[in-house]
Computed example of a mutant assay.
Amino acid sequence: MTASENVRSILLVDDDEMLLAYLAEVLQFAGFQIWSATNGQDALQVALDQEPSLALLDINMPGMSGLELARHLRHESAIPFMFLSSLDDMEIVKQATRYGAVGYLVKPVNQSQLLPAITAALARADDIRQLRNNEMSLTAALDAGRETSMAVGLLMMRFRLTRHLAFQKLRDQSRSQRRKISEVAKEMLTQHESSLSQPEKS
Rank of each mutant, 00 (worst) to 15 (best):
R74A: 09
A78C: 03
A78I: 01
M82R: 05
S85W: 00
S86Y: 04
L87V: 08
D89A: 06
M90G: 04
T97N: 12
T97W: 13
T97M: 10
T97V: 13
R98E: 13
R98V: 03
V102H: 00
G103L: 00
Y104L: 04
V106M: 10
K107G: 03
K107R: 15
P108H: 12
Q111V: 07
Q111H: 13
Q113G: 07
Q113K: 14
L114T: 06
L115D: 11
L115G: 06
P116W: 05
I118A: 02
I118T: 10
A120R: 14
A120I: 08
A120L: 09
R124N: 14
A125C: 13
D126I: 02
D126V: 03
D127F: 09
R132H: 15
N133P: 02
N134F: 08
E135M: 09
M136C: 04
A140R: 15
A141P: 08
L142S: 12
A144Q: 09
G145K: 08
R146K: 15
E147R: 15
S149L: 13
M150F: 09
G153L: 07
L155R: 01
M156V: 09
M157F: 10
M157C: 06
R158Q: 13
F159T: 07
R160S: 13
R160G: 11
L161M: 14
T162W: 08
H164I: 14
L165G: 02
L170I: 06
Q173M: 09
Q173G: 09
Q177W: 15
I181R: 03
I181Q: 11
I181G: 02
I181H: 03
S182R: 02
E183Q: 11
E183D: 15
V184D: 00
